Structure formats: C-alpha cells, structure tokens
Simulated scan of single mutants.
Amino acid sequence: MHKHMVRRGGVVGLLAAAALLVGALPASAAPGDGSAFVVSANLTLVGGPAINVGPLAPSHTDGPTTAEVASVSIPNVLTAGVATSEAIRDDATGGVHSEASVANVALSLGGFSGSIGLVEAACDATQGGNTGSTSIVNGTFNGQSLPANPPPNTVIAVPPGPVPPPVLSITLNEQIVNGDGSLTVNAIHIRANTPIISGDVIISSATCGPAAPPIPMASGAGLWIGLGLLGAVAIPVGFSVIRKRRTLVTG
C-alpha cells in the first residue's frame, strides 16, 4: 500500500510540475539577440591590394558581451584610439542593449579627410519596440562639420552637389530594420563607388532586438492547478509517512 501511495505521489508530482511550467513559460523560449562592433572596412583600390578588415572588437549577447581594442589602424584609410563594444540582454524583461564607440578617429579616403573626437552608435530593444541613436563629438569631414546627433539616415555627399558626382556617400545614424525584426544602427557608413575606389567603411555599429518575451513566475491558472496538485501529493504522502511511523512505534 505504501509503495502504491508513493508511486501515485510521483505521478501526480510530475503533473504538478508540468502545470507550473505551463504557467511560467513565455510565448517563445528564444531570447533576444544583440551584437556590436567598432570598425569594418571592405575596399578595392586601383593599384593597391583589397582592404578587408573586421568587424573589429565584436561583442554579442551570447558572449563575449564586451570587447575593447586599444587602437585601430587601417593604412591609408583610418586610424583611431580606444574602441569598445557591448551587447547585453536582460533575461527578466527580455530587453537588449547594444553599443559601440570609437575615439580619436582620423579618416583619409578618396582624397578627402576628416577627424572625429568620439563616435557612438547605440540601440535598445524593449517590449515597446526598437530604438537607435548616434552621437558624434567634434566631427568634421572635407571641411564640413558633422552634426552631433544626426537624424536617422542623414546622407552627406562628398564633394557636395550634383556635379561632379560624389566620390563618397556618407550616411550618419544609418538605421536598418532587418528581416528578423532587429534594428542595426551604423553611426557612420561611408560608401565609395568610383573607378578608383569602391567599397565601404563602417564606424561604430550596434544591432539589437527584437526583445524576447520576459520570463515571469508561474501565474494564473497554471499556478493554482500546480499548487492544487502539489497539495494532492503532499497531504496523502504525509499521512502515509505518519501511519508508517505509528506502526513502527506501536510494533
């Protein structure tokens, strides 16, 4: 009889655990992803070797969540100082935050040059949606000041004007909504498409989202069913143990 009670208790216990899990599981078990990197360059130069660098200092919500390099050097294209990236996920809320920053950037591309004290891309994914931003400190290129907080997808032609055609197209605060619902923010995306130079350079890139559903404690019907089934296990098994002890004592 005791073995039968314990066996019945084990079965009911499994049912109780299953009910609690039903109440606790979110709609999707897959967490939100995020990533970031500081610089990448893919260029073809006439009379010179192809340049394929990066992504440098990559980070990801699955790890490593942070990355840093003391300096960046791409000959005849770019030099920079300290560059960092970060991609973190909050499992309790499902939110994701990614960012990348590069300090003391010096650019030389297509016969044009520029400098930036600090450039940063950031994005956040929450249950309310995705948002992104770009910050540029003391930035100039081809003698033109770069806005500190450019609106999304601000395009600058270098040289300016329709004639001659631009050698470079610079997109500031480039925001791309990807097919999986995530958002990519490229603080600076330089595109070159001439017979002499072609390709692109990205400085500070962050991708995040969509946010994962939060992971709540068991609630609602699953909670009460689970607690009821646990009670159905605990009470009979408890009485069985008490009877067994009484039998041993009286025996």
Rank of each mutant, 00 (worst) to 15 (best):
V167D: 03
Q144K: 12
T154F: 03
P165Q: 14
V158M: 00
N142I: 04
Q144W: 05
T171C: 05
L146K: 03
P162H: 02
G143S: 06
N153S: 14
S145R: 09
P162T: 06
V163R: 13
G143T: 02
A157M: 04
T154M: 11
I170Q: 01
T134M: 06
S145M: 10
S169N: 15
P166Q: 09
S169D: 11
V167A: 09
T131Y: 10
G139Y: 03
V167P: 00
P160Y: 06
T154D: 04
V155L: 10
V137R: 12
T154W: 00
V137T: 14
S169T: 15
P164I: 05
S145L: 13
V167M: 02
T171A: 12
P160M: 05
T131R: 13
P162Y: 01
N142V: 05
G139D: 00
I136V: 13
A157C: 00
T171L: 07
Q144V: 14
P165Y: 14
N138Q: 15
P152I: 07
Q144M: 15
T154Y: 06
P160V: 01
P164S: 01
S169E: 12
T131F: 12
V163K: 12
G161C: 09
N153H: 11
G132Y: 01
F141G: 08
P159A: 10
P159T: 09
T154L: 13
T154G: 03
G139P: 02
Q144C: 04
L146D: 03
L146R: 02
P152S: 12
V158Y: 00
V155D: 02
L168D: 01
G161E: 07
L168N: 05
F141R: 05
G143H: 02
A148Q: 14
T140H: 11
G143R: 01
V155R: 03
T171D: 04
P164K: 01
G132Q: 03
N138Y: 09
T134Y: 01
P147R: 08
I156L: 15
A157F: 05
V167R: 02
G161H: 09
N153Q: 10
S135Y: 11
S145P: 04
P151K: 08
S135D: 12
N149M: 09
P150I: 02
S145E: 11
N149V: 10
V137W: 06
S135F: 13
P160E: 06
L168W: 00
I136N: 00
T131N: 13
N149Y: 08
P166M: 08
P160F: 04
A157Q: 10
T171M: 08
N153I: 07
N149G: 09
A157L: 04
P150L: 01
P152T: 08
P150S: 07
V137M: 07
T154P: 00
L168S: 03
T134I: 06
P151G: 11
T131D: 13
T131K: 14
L146N: 06
V163S: 15
P152V: 07
G161I: 11
S133Q: 15
T134P: 03
A157K: 05
A157R: 08
P166C: 10
I170T: 04
P166F: 05
N153M: 07
P162S: 08
S169Y: 05
G139C: 03
P150D: 06
A148D: 14
A148C: 08
P159Y: 11
S145D: 12
V167C: 04
A157S: 12
G132I: 00
P160A: 12
S145T: 15
P165G: 13
F141W: 07
V137G: 02
P164N: 01
I156E: 04
S169K: 14
V167T: 14
